[in-house]
Write a protein that binds this DNA or RNA. Structure first.
Length: 197
DNA sequence: ACCCAGGAATTGT
DNA sequence: ACAATTCATGGG
């Protein structure tokens, strides 16, 4: 952690809109950055509203109600693949008010995570991302491949398949700043990897 | 053809 | 309840 902070001191944590955030991270499953942004751009360009600002064209991200009226087939054309069914299911739930993302901000970390994980296609990692990047839960510690490697190399923490053990360890160790710790470890590990290739 | 990418659901113990 | 297996997909 010392090395990680020295390299990138000043990292901040996004405070995204929960709906955009959760769709983005559903798209992130077994994917990569370029593809994820393509997915989000495709959804916006085809379903969002056009905005012209300084002669530049932008598109808003569509509300859940709009996405709920589409189809798995269309979302697949946007490149979401097997994640399409998860996004459509979520959009319908939000539209029918069977689930309220904003309300999760009022619950504590464990309650909020448990509710997120009840959604189709949302497991521990994506739930932690949504909690950290859009629901103000700074103790959340999302563990992806890179963070797992950082924990292994820097802290001899072999998590293997035990996501819960490692994430609880991180929350106990860094408390309400575990999210910031994750940011530093992730960024550091990515840079280590880039130097190797 | 092979490998990887910001995992989750399902199926065993 | 955990742990192992299957699912799933476009890009490099």
């Amino acid at each position: 952690m010392d090395k990680a902070i020295l390299k990138n001191r000043g990292l901040r944590i996004l405070k995204q809109d929960p709906w955009i955030c959760i769709v983005s991270f559903i798209c992130s499953a077994v994917s990569n950055f370029n593809k994820i942004s393509q997915n989000i751009n495709n959804i916006s360009e085809h379903l969002g509203e056009k905005i012209i600002f300084n002669d530049e064209t932008f598109y808003t991200f569509p509300k859940p109600e709009v996405v709920a009226e589409t189809s798995i087939k269309l979302l697949r054309e946007f490149g979401l693949g097997f994640r399409s069914k998860y996004v459509l299911d979520l959009a319908v739930r939000l539209t029918d008010q069977l689930f309220n993302l904003e309300k999760l901000k009022t619950f504590n970390y464990l309650e909020s995570r448990s509710l997120l994980e009840s959604l189709y296609g949302i497991g521990s990692k994506i739930a932690d991302c949504v909690l950290l990047y859009s629901l103000n839960k700074t103790e959340s510690f999302p563990i992806d491949r890179w963070v797992a490697r950082a924990l292994r190399d820097g802290y001899c923490l072999e998590m293997k398949n035990s996501y819960n053990y490692a994430s609880e360890w991180a929350r106990n160790n860094w408390k309400e700043n575990a999210g910031y710790a994750q940011q530093y470890l992730f960024q550091y590990q990515k840079e280590v990897n880039n130097e190797k290739t």
